[in-house]
Design a binder for these strands. Structure first.
Length: 440
DNA sequence: GTTGAGCGTT
C-alpha cells in the first residue's frame, strides 16, 4: 500500500514527504522529481549508529523493513554532484566536477507553451495529461474571454526542471491531436542588461506592492516596487543589488497563483518600439563592465546587440552537448563584436519561420535554434524555441551552419570557452522553410 | 455552430 515517506536532503534538514507506490516501494523517479540528481536513499540506523543504504533495484527503492516507518531518510547524490547549497559550506568537497559553464546554466523551469490543443481540451485535461511528467505548478488554456472558446494553446509549468526536459523532448498526443511543447517566444532575448530594476509582467490586479515586495525580498533587498495605476498588468521591482535583479531576469515566478514573467526593465523610451521587433527590451546596450560602454544611444542601431536569450533551458535535451554554448558574457561579447558592424537587431524572434536566411550582407546572425519540425524525433530533440545557443554562425539559406569562432575579441572581453567546437552547433538545414518571415 | 499557425490583458 502507498504511504508517505519522510525524506530530507541532509541529516537535520527539514524532511519532505514523498509517496511510495502501492507495492510499498519508492520509485527513484519520484525521489528525483523532488531531489533532482538523487540516486538513492540512506538512513541512520539508531541501533548501530551507522548509516545504512537502501536497496535499489529496477529503479525502485525498497524499505528497510516491511514498511518505511516514520524515520527520516536521507537523499543520496552521486559523488561530486552535491547540491550548490551544500557546496557553499562544505569546503572539503572538491568542486572539480563542476564544469566551467555550470555557472551560466539555469536549470530552472519556465512556463512552457502547449501548441495545437484540441478546442475541447480543458485545463483539467491538460493537467491530467502533463502530470505524468512531474508535478505541475500551473496549467492554463488560453480562451477567448467572450466566448470561452479555447484558442488552441495553453501554458504549463513544472515544478522540476527534469520534468520540463522530459516533457519537451517529445511530442504529445492530447485528446486526439499532436501537440507541441516549447519555450514561449516571450523568453527570447532574455538576457538583460545589468540593472537593478526588473520588469514584472503578467501581474494580476490582486498583487499589491506589498505582495511583490514580500515575494521578491527572498531574493534580495527590495528597494522599490512600482505598480502603474490604473492597472496595467505589470510592475517594476528594484533591488539593492543589481546581481539580484539580473539573476531573476528571464524567469517566471508564481505569485498569488499567477505566473509572472521577469525581465530587465527597459527605459521608457523603448515603449515606442514593437516588442516583437526588438526582443525583450534588449535594444539598449548592455551597461555592465564589459559591453560597448555606458551611455550608448539606444536608438542608434549600431549600438544594438541582438542576442537571443533562453539561458540554459535546453540543457540535457537530446544530449547535444550544448552546454558550452549557453549564453554567457563571453558569447555576448563575441556576438557583439560581430554584430556591431551589422544593421542592428536581427529578426531573432522569427528565424524559425524562415529557415535561416535573415540579415543581408555576410549573413552573420546569432543563432536561434528555434522551432522544431514535427518530424524530428526525440533522439535528435531540437532546442526549443527561444533557447538559443548564442553562437555566431553562418545562417544563410538554412544550409549547414558553421561556427565562426569568437571573432576578434578585444582585450576587455572575457575569454571564450575553449570547449566550443563546430560539431556542437547543430544544423537545422533540414528544417522545412516556410514562406514569409513576417519581417518587412 | 466554423478554425489549426501561433505566443500569455506589458
Amino acid at each position: 500500500m502507498s504511504q508517505y515517506i519522510h525524506v530530507a536532503e541532509n541529516e537535520g534538514n527539514e524532511p519532505m514527504e514523498v509517496p511510495s507506490e502501492d507495492d510499498g516501494t519508492l520509485l527513484l523517479t519520484t525521489l528525483s522529481a523532488q531531489f533532482p540528481g538523487a540516486c538513492g536513499l540512506k538512513y541512520r540506523n539508531h541501533e548501530t549508529g551507522t548509516i545504512r543504504g537502501l536497496r535499489l533495484s529496477d529503479g525502485r527503492l525498497y524499505p528497510p523493513d516491511t514498511d518505511w516507518g516514520r524515520q527520516v531518510y536521507i537523499v543520496v547524490f552521486p559523488k561530486g554532484e552535491k547540491t550548490n547549497k551544500e557546496n557553499s559550506h562544505t569546503s572539503s568537497e572538491p568542486t572539480l566536477l563542476v564544469k566551467p559553464y555550470k555557472r551560466f546554466e539555469r536549470q530552472k523551469c519556465s512556463d512552457l507553451i502547449v501548441l495545437g490543443l484540441p478546442w475541447k481540451s480543458s485545463e483539467d485535461d491538460l493537467r491530467k495529461y502533463f502530470q505524468q511528467f512531474g508535478e505541475l505548478l500551473m496549467v492554463q488554456v488560453k480562451k477567448d474571454p467572450k466566448s470561452g472558446q479555447s484558442k488552441g494553446f495553453g501554458f504549463v509549468r513544472f515544478a522540476e526542471y527534469d520534468s520540463q526536459v522530459k516533457c519537451m523532448s517529445q511530442r504529445h498526443m492530447i485528446d486526439g491531436r499532436w501537440c507541441d511543447v516549447r519555450i514561449p517566444n516571450s523568453k527570447e532575448g532574455a538576457q538583460q542588461m545589468m540593472n537593478r530594476k526588473v520588469f514584472v509582467g503578467r501581474c494580476t490586479e490582486e498583487m499589491t506592492a506589498e505582495d511583490l515586495r514580500q515575494y521578491f525580498s527572498k531574493f534580495g533587498e527590495v528597494v522599490d516596487v512600482f505598480i502603474p495605476k490604473p492597472f496595467r498588468a505589470f510592475a517594476f521591482v528594484s533591488f539593492a543589488d543589481p546581481e539580484t535583479a539580473q539573476g531573476l531576469c528571464g524567469e517566471d515566478h508564481i505569485i498569488k497563483g499567477a505566473s509572472v514573467h521577469i525581465s530587465g526593465a527597459a527605459p521608457k523610451a523603448s515603449e515606442k518600439y514593437d516588442r516583437r521587433m526588438v526582443p525583450s527590451h534588449g535594444h539598449v546596450p548592455y551597461q555592465g563592465s564589459w559591453g560597448p560602454g555606458r551611455g550608448g544611444n539606444p536608438n542608434h542601431t549600431n549600438s544594438n546587440l541582438g542576442v537571443a536569450g533562453g539561458i540554459g533551458n535546453n540543457m540535457g535535451i537530446g544530449n547535444l552537448g550544448l552546454g558550452a554554448l549557453q549564453l554567457n558574457h563571453a558569447m555576448l561579447a563575441a556576438a557583439q563584436a560581430v554584430l556591431s558592424s551589422q544593421t542592428g537587431w536581427g529578426p531573432l524572434g522569427l528565424t524559425h519561420q524562415s529557415g535561416g536566411a535573415t540579415t543581408n550582407g555576410d549573413q552573420l546572425v546569432v543563432a536561434t535554434t528555434t522551432a522544431a519540425p514535427h518530424s524530428i524525433s526525440t533522439s535528435y530533440a531540437p532546442a526549443p524555441m527561444g533557447t538559443s545557443n548564442g553562437a555566431v554562425v553562418t545562417g544563410a539559406g538554412g544550409g549547414n551552419n558553421s561556427f565562426l569562432g569568437w571573432g576578434n575579441q578585444s582585450a576587455e572581453m572575457p575569454p571564450a570557452p575553449h570547449t566550443v567546437t563546430t560539431s556542437q552547433v547543430p544544423s537545422w538545414g533540414s528544417m522545412p522553410a516556410k514562406a514569409g518571415s513576417g519581417w518587412n
